[in-house]
């Protein structure tokens, strides 16, 4: 197991290295001059020239890439061109914002997805089964940016039940410690703030969680169906064990392995894929952060930002693989 983990971690190195090459070549193929964007139209040509020099943008690409790798190897993610802040510090609140949103979205997706999947499987071909699978089908086909807009229109603009944008009321900022506002608001003992944070999370959480929910529901259902058909469940039924007991104690445990894969995969994907939800709900997350960096040609931020997300993504995949062992002792790692 330990060997396996180490081997997997080592295999990450060429992948990450390859990613730096791809990202580096793509972003330097992007036309446009960062000095122009950063300094604005009214800046003089000489000051733009000076900035380019300072950023070493006048050097050959290979030299720039070498410098970047050297710094990266030393654990330095670089400095943002635009803000002159170290990226490792700057990116933290954005990552936290996305993480919080993703966790909420996944919690929503797992809770409704798994339960709907189980019940559908248990009551196969009932109206509940049909209805929830129809919803799941529509869910996987949903353009989430449209769903987000519709939610915003209905629940924020028309009904005014929930806030339409942002993480928190700007008037009453949360004292940030972890940058996860749900936790921070509780840390400062502000139940009212916690409630406001929750309200801000609902709409984007649902928008981001809908597709994983639908996928998880479908996966859980089919995987449950397979397990329910198996002999030992029939035996359990024959023994007269209660339905709930059979489902949650026996069947789910075995049906959960493929579901777990999906959950892990989806979680990783949401982290980087939240840019649309973040755009619609003005959520200051990492997807938006990188998107803005692309627009302003903030090369170091694009590079390191994408790398960090990808790194988290592969780590989660690794984690899921390792979790298999915990859930299913039959899997062993050679």
């Amino acid at each position: 197991m330990l060997n396996y983990t180490i081997r997997r971690l080592l295999m990450l190195i060429p992948v990450l290295l390859g990613m730096t090459i791809i990202v580096f070549s793509i972003i330097h193929a992007i036309p446009g001059d960062p000095a122009e964007v950063i300094l604005g139209e009214k800046a003089s040509n000489s000051s733009k020239e000076a900035l380019r020099k300072e950023l070493k943008l006048d050097q050959p690409l290979l030299v720039q890439y070498g410098d970047y790798l050297k710094k990266l190897a030393a654990g330095d993610l670089g400095t943002s061109i635009r803000t002159r802040e170290p990226i490792s510090a700057e990116i933290t609140p954005y990552l936290a914002a996305t993480l919080e949103l993703t966790l909420v979205a996944m919690a929503f997706a797992v809770f409704f997805g798994v339960n709907a999947g189980i019940l559908s499987a248990w009551k196969q071909n009932s109206w509940f089964d049909y209805l929830s699978m129809l919803i799941a089908l529509i869910g996987v086909s949903m353009p989430i940016f449209w769903l987000g807009l519709m939610e915003q229109w209905l629940f924020a603009l028309e009904l005014k039940w929930l806030p339409s944008i942002g993480r928190m009321n700007a008037r009453d900022p949360v004292e940030s410690v972890t940058n996860l506002y749900l936790i921070d608001s509780l840390l400062s003992g502000r139940a009212d703030q916690f409630w406001t944070v929750v309200k801000h999370l609902i709409l984007p959480g649902i928008a981001l969680g809908t597709i994983p929910m639908a996928i998880i529901a479908r996966m859980t259902r089919s995987s449950m169906l397979e397990v329910l058909r198996s002999d030992y469940i029939r035996t359990a039924k024959a023994k007269g064990l209660s339905q709930m007991f059979i489902i949650y104690k026996h069947a789910l445990r075995n049906a959960f392995i493929p579901v777990l894969t999906v959950i892990g995969l989806q979680f990783g994907l949401l982290l980087g894929g939240a840019v649309l939800t973040e755009t619609i709900f003005a959520w200051p997350g990492v997807g938006r952060y990188i998107f803005d960096a692309i627009a302003s040609r903030d090369y170091p931020v694009i590079q390191s930002g994408i790398l960090i997300i990808a790194f988290i993504f592969v780590l989660i995949n690794l984690l899921v693989d390792l979790l298999y062992a915990a859930v299913d002792p039959r899997i062993n790692f050679k």
Binding site: I27, A29, G273
Partner: peptide, 15 residues
């Protein structure tokens, strides 16, 4: 391993 949408955005930005 790339966040797909960001990769696509970067490619489109380049092209």
């Amino acid at each position: 391993a790339f966040p797909g949408i960001l990769l696509a955005i970067a490619i489109v930005a380049a092209l």
